[in-house]
Computed example of a mutant assay.
Amino acid sequence: MKAIEIRTYGGPDGLAVVGLPAPVPAAGDVVIAAEAVGVGGVDTVIRSGALAAYGFKEGHIPGNEVAGTVTAVGEGVDTSWIGRRVWGFTGTGGGYVEQAVVPVREILPLPDGLSAADAVTLGTSGVVAYFALAHARFAPGETVLVRGAAGGIGVMTVQLAAKGGAAAVAVTTSSAERGARLRKLGATHVLDRAGDGGQDAPAGYDVIIDIVAGEDLPSFFDRLNPNGRMVAVGVVAGQPPADFGTRMLAAFRKSLSFATFSADTVASADLHAVRGEQFAAAVRGELDTVVHEVLPLDHAVRAHRKMDDGEVFGRIVLTP
Rank of each mutant, 00 (worst) to 15 (best):
Arg137Val: 03
Pro140Ala: 14
Pro140His: 15
Gly141Lys: 00
Glu142Asp: 10
Thr143Ile: 10
Val144Pro: 03
Val144Asn: 02
Leu145Lys: 07
Leu145Gln: 08
Val146Asp: 00
Val146Glu: 00
Val146Pro: 00
Arg147His: 14
Arg147Cys: 13
Arg147Ile: 13
Ala150Gly: 05
Gly151Val: 13
Gly151Leu: 09
Ile153Asn: 05
Ile153Gly: 06
Gly154Ser: 06
Val155Ser: 01
Met156His: 02
Thr157Cys: 05
Thr157Met: 10
Thr157Ile: 12
Val158Gln: 05
Gln159Gly: 10
Leu160Asp: 04
Leu160Thr: 09
Ala161Leu: 05
Ala161Lys: 02
Ala161Ser: 04
Ala162Glu: 04
Ala162Val: 04
Ala162Cys: 05
Ala162Arg: 14
Gly164Trp: 01
Gly164Pro: 01
Gly165Ser: 06
Gly165His: 07
Gly165Trp: 06
Gly165Glu: 09
Gly165Asn: 07
Ala167Glu: 01
Ala168Glu: 02
Ala168Gly: 01
Val169His: 10
Val169Trp: 08
Ala170His: 11
Ala170Cys: 12
Val171Cys: 15
Thr173Glu: 04
Ser175Phe: 02
Ser175Cys: 03
Ser175His: 02
Ala176Gly: 07
Ala176Asn: 11
Glu177Asn: 13
Glu177Met: 13
Glu177His: 12
Glu177Cys: 10
Glu177Arg: 15
Arg178Gly: 06
Gly179Gln: 15
Gly179Phe: 15
Ala180His: 06
Ala180Ser: 08
Ala180Arg: 11
Arg181Met: 13
Leu182Glu: 04
Lys184Cys: 06
Lys184Asn: 08
Leu185Gly: 05
Leu185Asp: 09
Leu185Lys: 07
Leu185Glu: 07
Gly186Cys: 07
Gly186Met: 05
Gly186Phe: 06
Val190Trp: 03
Asp192Thr: 07
Asp192Gly: 13
Asp192Phe: 13
Arg193Gly: 05
Arg193Pro: 02
Arg193Ser: 11
Ala194Asp: 10
Ala194Gly: 06
Ala194Val: 05
Ala194Arg: 13
